[in-house]
Design a protein around this nucleic acid. Structure first.
Lengths: 157, 157
DNA sequence: GGGTAGACTTTCTTCAAGCAAGCCAGATCC
DNA sequence: GGATCTGGCTTGCTTGAAGAAAGTCTACCC
């Protein structure tokens, strides 16, 4: 598609963010990372093509959203991709998308809820507990997902 | 790029939203719309190619983010693209991107601020006034943009 | 009736998404 | 010790969308 436009030096912070996360796979890889995925194999569950996943992971490491850590899994070296601070700070973007999706693209099969651990209630805000009025981060929120309505999933960070 | 993946019927609301706004131009067209752009000619200022803009506007109308209104500008029929409720509800997504961009891709030239009209203070949340703790929508917020640091821009809705 | 403005449409080239297959190193099976 | 498996990629191919530029169409402007 010829070289896609570059907004990395745009004067608008929205455009600069779009330059980083204005891609479906980046957002979905982030979602998987928050849900605990760390290995190449785990991210494949998204249904992304291998070459695209490889490129995206490398790009996200370069963009500072993920960090590639080498650890040994049974004395063979393995890598995992861990959320950086910058990556974890994108949680409100995912939450805003989740809230919009629930409202404007609803499905009958179970809702997603963003539960504030401290008070146990779902919040309707992307970054604040709508009950306690305190800011929430990955450390304070768990997700209740449509596919596992009984489980409450603490987020990676 | 072969046909891009389709998440419109995914069980995850994040994926369903990504299906709609997981594209740089859609997000930037939305930003322009919040800043008051309504006509084809005005959106061109984004630097988007005409054919791409044409397709995006049509897609966003079909997705229910924009509404194409015909009005008469000097007894010749003209169109404008207006934000729908669903489009306006994407404001928190743009705000979350703006806050992330300011924090993790800062520029020395002026900050963007999301000002809650009622109290006059900038909020650090995507959808709540961090001072008053009330939810904020396009009706309650104005943007202070890096390129016009003196102006306070009320948002379209 | 020539020019301009707005809103597109068409044509062309380039590049990335998607798909499939291949590769390589270490572990595990037999 | 050869064969298979697993994880994490890389390579090759096809198709379609992004980008750039030019063309179209309608209506007013002078």
């Amino acid at each position: 598609m010829a070289l896609r436009s570059d907004w990395s030096a745009d004067s608008c912070p929205i455009a600069r963010s779009v330059d980083v996360v204005g891609d479906p796979w980046v957002l979905l890889v982030l979602r998987e990372a928050f849900e605990g995925a760390t290995r190449f194999e785990e991210f494949r569950a998204l249904g992304i093509a291998d070459n695209v996943l490889s490129r995206r992971l490398a790009g996200m490491v370069e963009a500072g959203l993920l960090e590639r850590a080498t650890y040994d899994g049974g004395n063979r070296p393995r890598h995992r991709y861990l959320l950086t601070g910058a990556g974890a700070d994108l949680l409100p973007v995912l939450h805003a998308l989740a809230l919009w999706g629930e409202r404007h693209r609803p499905r009958s099969t179970g809702r997603m809820e963003l539960v504030h651990e401290a008070c146990g209630r779902p919040t309707q805000s992307a970054d604040t507990c709508s009950h306690c009025h305190v800011p929430v981060t990955a450390a304070d929120v768990s997700w209740r997902l449509p596919k596992h309505p009984e489980a409450l999933l603490p987020l990676a960070r």
